[in-house]
Design a protein around this nucleic acid. Structure first.
Lengths: 163, 163
DNA sequence: CTCCTAATGATGCATATACATTATATGGCG
DNA sequence: CGCCATATAATGTATATGCATCATTAGGAG
């Protein structure tokens, strides 16, 4: 192994936005998981329930698109929420789609989780500064957009779905 | 469900940095996975092998710390790389720690993956602009730092490990 | 020299993630 | 009215992730 290789590897480790995106997602997910743990809720479960509460009756496909998650992943995650009685699904296989809504139990739990999220958010804002927190969120939105395979300018070697 | 609740949920969905960090990490990981798929390599496997190649002989604990990943997660991910014959581990249980290095096979694979990564990186830079790409990476580093439980200013309810 | 503490690695369990594939139902066309 | 192409959900398989816990080993105290 030459020094050239080692330097190349160090450069990549320091510059790869994908590596950093994963590391950051892991860190903030651990943070939120710890916050929500007393409620028996994970960060991702909270996000999905918020997404459903924000648009009751949303279909599985719509929610998957807005969350940037594969429909098969969302299918299983929603099944978990259904098992716990927090989410109710109307409809199933077929063109109509599976329409999602919060149960009374789910709505109650989410009401308890809201102040927990607000405190966690306030703490992040205090540590990083509100301007910087908004800036990083918007920057991550922009990065996700250009990384999407459905972006109008796909990289070579990444096939576009024929529509 | 009142309109107040729905608006609150929409605000949270639009403002939560954790949700966006996960969505962005998923998107860019899908992008890199597609790039590395012809090599039989995942984005995370690439990142770990780059981390090992950048500091041969690094211990499992050190690599976990630099990658911001739990040691138990890294333990299993490294086992996967060992099974494939890309990584060699010297030492094991005990205070000495498990020292990691690339095998000849792993080094060869990584050499093939380097130009693939560079092209993917160049494509991202072209789409987002190099300044913006560097900005978002640095912003994510900052977010990860303040979200770490080991941060000097922990949020209430998140215990610090007694050292 | 022996024992014990602490650091380290691995495992059990649960959730999360996505590609490939299968199962199902529906809307439209003949 | 019946069939089928297509949209949708679910499942099989594999990787990734982390907490709680267990297993192992080395370093130090006595």
């Amino acid at each position: 192994m030459s020094d050239v290789d080692r330097d190349a590897f160090r450069t990549i480790a320091a510059e790869c936005p994908g590596f950093q995106a994963r590391a950051t997602a892991r860190a903030i997910t651990r943070y939120h998981n710890a916050c929500f743990r007393p409620l028996g809720l994970t960060a991702e479960q909270f996000s999905l329930m918020v997404g459903i509460g924000a648009a009751e009756g949303v279909t599985l496909v719509e929610l998957a698109l807005s969350a940037g998650v594969d429909t098969t992943t969302l299918s299983r995650n929603i099944q978990n929420l259904e098992k716990r009685g927090w989410v109710y699904a109307d409809g199933g296989r077929g063109r109509a789609g599976k329409r999602l809504s919060l149960t009374a139990s789910g709505h109650h739990l989410l009401a308890e989780a809201l102040p927990v999220w607000r405190q966690a958010q306030a703490e992040l804002s205090r540590r990083l500064g509100n301007d910087q927190l908004q800036l990083v969120r918007r920057a991550m939105v922009a990065l996700a957009v250009v990384a999407e395979p459905s972006s109008p300018t796909a990289p070579e070697g990444v096939e576009q779905p024929v529509s």
